[in-house]
Nucleic acid binder design. Structure first.
Lengths: 228, 228
DNA sequence: TTACCCCAACTGGTCTTACCAAAAGTATTG
DNA sequence: CAATACTTTTGGTAAGACCAGTTGGGGTAA
């Protein structure tokens, strides 16, 4: 009976990870609370956690919370240099186009109602904030919006990839935005409209439409940069 | 302090395995005794054991003792059919020639004095028993002698390999012995002499000599079979 | 307001004790 | 000698206590 509890706990946690409820970096419930919820001793919980840790799913530190791990990390450990060349930025945007399309697709498909509400709220806040702020903050707000979409996709691979992508290529993305803003003085109408279209498609739960809009949005940005 | 104990215990066990003191199939000390010996809680011991189990070093069953595992097992899981054809038997003997040579070498090099005594005792017993017994028992006695040499080699890879070898190819080996005995009516003098030479070389702790004799011993058997 | 620091609560790490369940060993019995 | 029943041993689980870091919030000072 207790052995099945251990398996149940393990499976539950793995499911949460696989389904994107426990995204990389998110903290797991404490051992004590899990023991309580699953009606098992903390001892048994620890053994499950240790197993998951050993398999590279979670990260455990004394005192701190246990965290879900981004398993793609090791695949990105090559080449620390973040290129700022034009060709590299174009490459980044090409990859991002695919990524954004898929995350938008799965977000529209899988996001919970609460997540959609939160997304709408963040979107409105982004519109407000956009009026008078530094380029850096605008870029951050932009990324936050896109990251929320990614996190609501409940797609482990996409979430992991997005995290690393934004972490690693933030400078490149910021550069693009900076260049674009410098040229137009403000967000081009195209970009604002595209954000709006993406958001509407997601809220309407139209996955294919969301994918199309998101992909086009990035490719539009790419064309702007390319025209330099 | 306790963390270092865990690492120490883990390293100690792994060392014992690597050095052939804990051969595959051998049982480990109980959790309670290890906790006592290493001055740590049984809890901590269990975590170490579980780690080793997860990495495939040991096998744990409730009630029974924990056992060291033969990690080569999975590499030998192909082809269940034990061929008794001549060509296959010759192949087996060729592989065995190398194996016996190496085990004899490391046995002469690394065996403890107690192990050499036990080997001498087994050798004498084998000589006595050889006089009037079934072919099957003679084959078993022969394999026991060779297996003792392998176990005294303190060479994890050779021990693991020998175990699987004898387990899997016992029938083939028995067949060879049976054919040989049928033809000569008894152990050929060559074989007895070779056993004697191997044993003496090991007891004299002359590794190269032991390897030479052991290899020659098997190749001699192989030639006998080949001459069929 | 902002930045910093400190302390209480929280979380993982370990130890102890007790009891259960399965295997292994031992004595008994046919 | 073999089969059986009993006892011991061993791993599995639980509960409680305490230690050792981390976290986060409130207070203080700049």
């Amino acid at each position: 009976m207790q052995t099945s509890s251990k398996l149940a706990l393990r499976q539950t946690l793995l499911d949460h990870i696989a389904q994107g409820n426990l995204i990389p970096g998110a903290s797991l419930p404490s051992e004590r609370s899990l023991a309580l919820r699953f009606q098992m001793s903390r001892n048994a919980v620890r053994e499950v956690m240790q197993g998951l840790q050993q398999e590279g799913w979670i990260e455990v530190r004394q005192g701190g919370r246990s965290r879900c791990v981004n398993r793609l990390q090791s695949y990105m450990e090559h080449g620390q240099s973040i290129e700022t060349s034009l060709s590299h930025q174009l490459d980044v945007l090409e990859a991002r186009a695919f990524l954004e399309g898929e995350t938008a697709y799965f977000c529209a498909l899988r996001a919970s109602d609460q997540e959609l509400d939160a997304l709408a709220q963040e979107y409105r806040a982004m519109l407000q904030r956009r009026k008078g702020q530094s380029t850096l903050l605008k870029a951050k707000a932009d990324l936050t919006f896109h990251m929320m979409i990614a996190e609501s996709s409940h797609h482990l691979l996409l979430i992991s990839y997005s995290q690393l992508f934004y972490e690693r290529y933030f400078n490149a993305i910021h550069e693009v935005l900076s260049t674009t803003l410098k040229r137009y003085g403000r967000y081009p109408d195209g970009i604002s409209q595209q954000h709006e279209k993406i958001h509407q498609a997601i809220q309407a739960r139209r996955p294919d439409q969301a994918r199309l809009e998101a992909k086009e949005h990035i490719l539009y940005t790419r064309r702007l940069l390319e025209a330099t």
